[in-house]
Amino acid sequence: MKKFLRNILWLLLPLALLAWPADRWLSSRLKHSFGMAQGEFSVWEDIYSAKMQNEVAVYGSSRAWCHYDPEILKDSLNAETYNLGMDGYGFYMQHMRHLEYFRYNKHPKYIILNLDLFTFEMPKGLYNATQFIPYMSHSENMQSYMWPLQGFTHFDYYVPLLRYYGRKSECISLISDAVQGKQSLPMRHKGYHAHASEWNEDFKNAAKLMEKYSIVIDSPVVQLMDRFLTDCAREKIQVIMVYSPENIAIRGFLRNKQQLVDLYREIAQRHHLVFLDYSDDPLCYDRSNFYNASHLNARGSRLFSQKLGHYLKTNGFIPKNMAVTP
């Protein structure tokens, strides 16, 4: 028995001892792999560097990070802008990012909250989970928000290297970049990424598979947004709710969009906020502005950012407390 335990120990001990430095090394490389995980690492690194000084912050999902050009908004508003759009997540995880952003950085004066079809949908599992790996063991907010979602086990937060289990493409890419001395260039600028692509068949394929989509409204997420808006009001942060353009092709695909829009209007009225609905804007009728039904391409996002910036500027940035269709 002693021999057995000794041999097992000899086999596993070196691996266990190597696990912690290997985890540290992989995590430090991963944090700076700006091309990975849809470029989310550059945003997380900006948040955790605690140097963000922007006055305007854009919140939202992928529709935020590829619709709002911070440089155009900065020019229009004369205020430093940062796009905190988070790929693939509704408001639940956006709120987690908001908490992290607020914890380490100067708070903005204005938040542009981009809304979409999935804003109130509670995620079942973690999407693009790689982005959380380097930070998840020491961020309490990440842990508490990710805990209920499928993707990581409880051990992944505490046991070194375990969270890299099965992430072969990431590990191999990190090792090969290190061997070749490659430094990855940021994919996003101030959180924004312009998609230079033309209209593709994503939506057509999705529509073929799903026929019609019913928008999910999870009441805990609605309550979370209410809490967030109340907190912002307390801090005197002006929130502007925006439904950015989506291509008209999506309309026939949705069952209950009006219910969602009505809810957005109701929330805006309840918190005395402006709700700018661009879902019927002329931009929506031109496919050359989109790369798929719900995402603007570089051209579309430039036009939209100019339009929004102009509107906010000409309306004194803090418009009347009313829901409007610009």
Binding site: L11, L161, Y165, G166
Partner: peptide
């Protein structure tokens, strides 16, 4: 034997598919 075990453990760790 030791080399083979280590190789298998690393393969299991690195090449694991989506659970």
């Amino acid at each position: 034997q030791y080399a083979v075990y280590i190789l298998f453990i690393l393969a299991i760790f690195l090449w694991a598919g989506t659970p």
